[in-house]
Write a protein that binds this DNA or RNA. Structure first.
Length: 872
RNA sequence: GCCGCCGUAGCUCAGGGGUAGAGCGCAUCCUUGGUAAGGCUGAGGUCCGGAGUUCAAAUCUCCGCGGCGGCACCA
């Protein structure tokens, strides 16, 4: 008997898998396919234990599905473009490419050491011209199809770094890197027309049954579809107030969007966004309006400032006519709470039915007329306080044709009448905007467009792709190195041959991750991004695993991309959905330490002196910080290689899946890891403790007479059933707990020879145990399999099946309750009748005792569960 | 502010109308040739609070409280 040494065993089995090409995908073309994918990593440097959780979960699924006979595709690659490489280049004078590929080499080795069942032949890096060349081809397909366009847009511009920033990179109005206040700039930018699919992206969510509800909801809210109406309000006095030009450009009315056309008779004003074209037009003639616009712009951009800003507005002097009563005139305001980017940038205010409108109306003394009567209210008595009523009800105080209708019917009725009179129509708007993909950065995929003075933007001919990034760039001055490059952008127009310039913007890295899962299906294809038939066989991804932080952007972009690719004829994917199953895993957290002066410290920098925590070098007092997700900045990462050297890859895999449900965070603790180590040793000892000359695995187990042997067989087959069920449902922590149970049962079945029956049962149970742990701790499983004398690799063994005859219990322990309180229990046959159970229960000595002096009222018998006696 | 998730042993969490559970930790004892240990036994619970439904509620319903997350003037 020996101890298990992972540092010997693990590399040995990894070499065995590699030499047998165990993880190659596509080797079972006749079997159903199964595509497992973890969100591919950004090659930032090193992997820590926190990262490994994501890959381990995917790996469990991959190995489990493989054991079930599927042709499994489980690839890995690198989301390799992005700003950190440029920062490293600037700070350390290294080329971004070298920095990136060095990191990839380190991280690849780490993932391999973790024993992941990955098909490395399909490895891709998005910064490889062999990858981005296809991305450029896709870009041009989208361009042809009208899914890509250029427009002037207001963007967040960092005046120090000379680049645009995404919204999430602006923190409190300042650039996240430079700290400089971000300015809004109008720039010519490239966009993907994601809004074209806004409806489909919303509707598609309904069918994603294997996605977390939470993520579907977040996407739904993000897209933010609202149905309502556009209503046009004709000017009552416009001509003399407006300079000229507006009418030609915008017509003789103001168009608003509303979700509540039913409240049209409660309207008391119109409000325009401060930057609505009409507001701007009027500001040219009226300094007061101009001043108001400036005031709104000054009012910070942080969300908190916006939220707390009181409602303000200015009367523009315009009057418009109510659509259903030409004699009813409404004032038009510009108001700070109206957004130019949503709907039409204009609203009609119906104060009784909208809190913002009510606040505004109260401030400027505008009429407040309730038009929706909540159920159970008396119309004569109904008054509104400081709160608007936004719920359903019956319309009143309105036109006779509308009064009495419920809100939903009223909405339809008003829309019908608007459409008839041509003053409006039903409309849907979205919160979602088009996807801005231009980035003024170097380390990204070049946009394959040439800007020609006479031809405009011209696509680079496909045969000239890729448009490659130059290597000789400098990061000495701020701004886009591509733009600064002395020669790179100079070219000729593919259309007219005149001198022209390349587009120097590169694509948002989210573009790279919007189709990488398709490239994995046909990663070696040099002619096209992927072969349609090949990709269509593997798609959709059956199980996608990643962090919730990508719940919106990445997943939405990818869903858009597959729709676009489908509509360009590149893939047969009718639903357009790339990911049939999605799992969002929680993080690994670890304790943190913080010095009094606010610095984060690593655990090894802290020591205890006189019962207090201090920094070892300085003696400065240290406080235990909160549990935080492992991150370099908090100095609480546990390096994966270090961990593996101490405990092995299996221990890391087992640990990150224990304890917490996969979707929740798990806390890294040293004691937990030691528990895992002991478990591994105990399990090995249990298997290794089988006597020499025991039967081989899968030996038929004949009819057994030994009661202990039968019990053990039952425990084993029950474990198969439960653990299979837990894996199917992504309850890995429950599977782990169940393995613990089963391991205890197996261990306690005895290490001495016992009866031949018991020995046979132990071998069977050990075999099952090894099969069950194989997806989780594959190296230990192989070592045990080999020790048991199994043929070949456990990796190639089929998943065990539970014998149904061993799952049924013939007797069951049933509690007996008296007035809902447990008084006794009895061991009865599972199929005992109700009458018999009642008789047995009333016959129970302690029940008899308890019943003395009481009158029996009722006996409730739930066969197999409980008997409850009611008496008083 | 709106929406969602969570609250069970010291910690991390299973369970989900009918006996309150696991791992780790803790305590007692045994072993010290399975030894960076191993084993036996055990203590530990207001299942967040309140009300309701029920023969029976940790579980279902409603109302609170606390924690976390998403969105945030979206008309």
């Amino acid at each position: 008997m020996s101890r298990y040494n992972p540092n010997e065993a693990e590399p040995k089995w990894q070499a065995a898998w590699a030499s047998q090409q165990s993880f190659k995908a596509g080797t079972r073309p006749d079997q159903p396919k199964y595509y497992v994918l973890e969100m591919f990593p950004y090659p930032s440097g090193r992997i820590h234990v926190g990262h490994s959780r994501n890959y381990t979960m995917g790996d469990v699924v991959a190995r489990y599905k493989r054991a079930q006979g599927f042709d499994v595709l489980h690839p890995m690659g690198w989301d390799a473009f992005g700003l950190p490489a440029e920062n490293a280049a600037r700070d350390r004078k290294i080329n971004p490419r070298e920095w990136t590929y060095d990191n990839i080499a380190v991280m690849r080795a780490q993932l391999q050491r973790l024993g992941l069942a990955l098909d490395w032949e399909r490895e891709i890096a998005t910064c490889d011209p062999e990858y981005y060349k296809h991305q450029q081809a896709i870009f041009l397909k989208f361009f042809e199809k009208g899914l890509v366009y250029r427009k002037k847009a207001k963007v967040n511009w960092d005046p120090v770094d000379h680049t645009v920033l995404a919204n999430e990179q602006v923190i409190d109005g300042k650039g996240w890197r430079s700290g400089a206040p971000v300015v809004q700039r109008e720039l010519d930018q490239w966009f993907f027309k994601i809004t074209e699919y806004a409806d489909d992206l919303t509707d598609g969510l309904e069918n994603l049954e294997r996605w977390p509800d939470k993520v579907r909801l977040m996407q739904k809210n993000w897209i933010g579809r609202s149905r309502g109406a556009h209503i046009r309000f004709e000017f009552a006095n416009g001509e003399d107030l407006l300079g000229h030009g507006y009418e030609a450009e915008f017509g003789s009315n103001i168009e608003v969007f509303t979700t509540r056309p039913d409240t049209i008779f409660g309207a008391s004003f119109l409000a325009l966004a401060p930057d609505h074209p009409l507001t701007k037009q009027l500001a040219k003639e009226d300094p007061a309006i101009d001043e108001f616009i400036a005031l709104c712009q000054r009012l910070g951009t942080s969300e908190e400032a916006i939220e707390k800003a009181p409602k303000r507005g200015i009367d523009l002097g315009l009057r418009v006519k109510h659509p259903f009563d030409p004699n009813w005139e409404l004032p038009v305001y510009a108001a700070n709470f109206v957004l130019s980017t949503y709907g039409t940038g204009a609203i009609f205010g119906s104060p009784a039915g909208d809190q913002r409108d009510l606040d505004f109306a109260r401030k400027y003394d505008l009429p407040v007329k309730p038009v929706v009567l909540p159920a159970g209210q008396d119309p004569a008595q109904y008054r509104l306080g400081e709160e608007a009523y936004t719920g359903p009800g019956k319309i009143f105080n309105s036109a006779s044709w509308l009064n009495g209708l419920d809100t939903l019917t009223a909405i339809e009725e008003v829309i019908k009448r608007l459409e008839k009179s041509g003053q409006g129509q039903g409309a849907t708007t979205f919160r979602l905007r088009d996807w801005l993909v231009s980035r003024q950065r170097y380390w990204g995929c070049p946009i394959p467009i040439v800007r020609c003075d006479s031809c405009g933007p011209v696509p680079v001919p496909t045969e000239q792709l890729p448009v490659k990034l130059p290597d000789d760039v400098s990061f000495d001055r701020p701004g886009n190195p591509l733009d600064h490059h002395p020669t790179w952008k100079e070219t000729t127009c593919p259309k007219c041959g005149a001198a022209a310039q390349r587009e120097t913007d590169t694509l948002d890295t989210f573009v790279c991750s919007s189709w990488y899962f398709l490239r994995f299906t046909d990663a070696q294809n040099t002619d096209q991004p992927f072969d349609n038939a090949t990709a269509s066989r593997w798609m959709p991804v059956d199980q996608y695993v990643g962090g919730v932080e990508h719940a919106i952007l990445h997943l939405l972009y990818a869903r858009f991309f597959t729709r676009g690719l489908r509509d360009c004829g590149l893939i047969d994917l009718p639903s357009g959905e790339p990911f049939a199953g999605l799992f969002t895993q929680g993080m690994v957290t670890h304790e943190t330490f913080r010095a009094e002066d606010g610095r984060w410290l690593a655990p090894e920098e802290v020591e205890e002196r006189d019962g207090r925590l201090v920094e070892a070098t300085s003696g400065i007092r240290v406080e235990k910080g909160p549990l935080e997700k492992m991150s370099k900045s908090k100095k609480n990462v546990v390096d994966l290689e270090r961990f593996i050297a101490d405990y092995g890859a299996d221990a890391a895999r087992w640990f990150v899946l224990s304890d917490s449900p996969p979707e929740r965070d798990v806390e890294y603790t040293e004691s937990g890891v030691e528990g895992v180590w002991r478990f591994i040793q105990r399990l090995w000892a249990t298997i290794d403790g089988l006597p020499e000359g025991a039967p081989k695995p899968f030996s038929p187990v004949s009819a057994l007479s030994d009661a202990n042997a039968i019990e053990l067989r039952k425990a084993a087959h029950k474990a198969v059933q439960d653990i299979t069920d837990h894996i199917e449902n992504f309850r890995f922590n429950a599977a782990v707990a169940r393995v613990h149970d089963f391991a205890n049962a197996l261990r306690k079945a005895g290490n001495d020879a016992g009866s031949q029956d018991l020995l046979a049962a132990r071998v069977e149970a050990s075999t099952i145990m090894v099969q069950l742990i194989a997806p989780f701790m594959p190296h230990l499983a192989e070592e045990c399999w080999s020790r048991l004398g199994g043929e070949g690799l456990i990796y190639d063994q089929a998943w065990p099946k539970a014998d149904p005859s061993l799952l049924v219990e013939d007797s069951v322990i049933m509690p007996i309750q008296l007035n809902g309180k447990r008084r006794s229990e009895m061991n009865v046959a599972k199929d005992a009748s109700k009458d018999e159970l009642e008789r047995l229960a009333l016959d129970d000595p302690s029940v008899k005792r308890a019943l003395e002096g009481l009158t029996l009222r009722k006996v409730i018998v739930v066969p197999g569960r409980i008997v409850n006696i009611v008496a008083n």
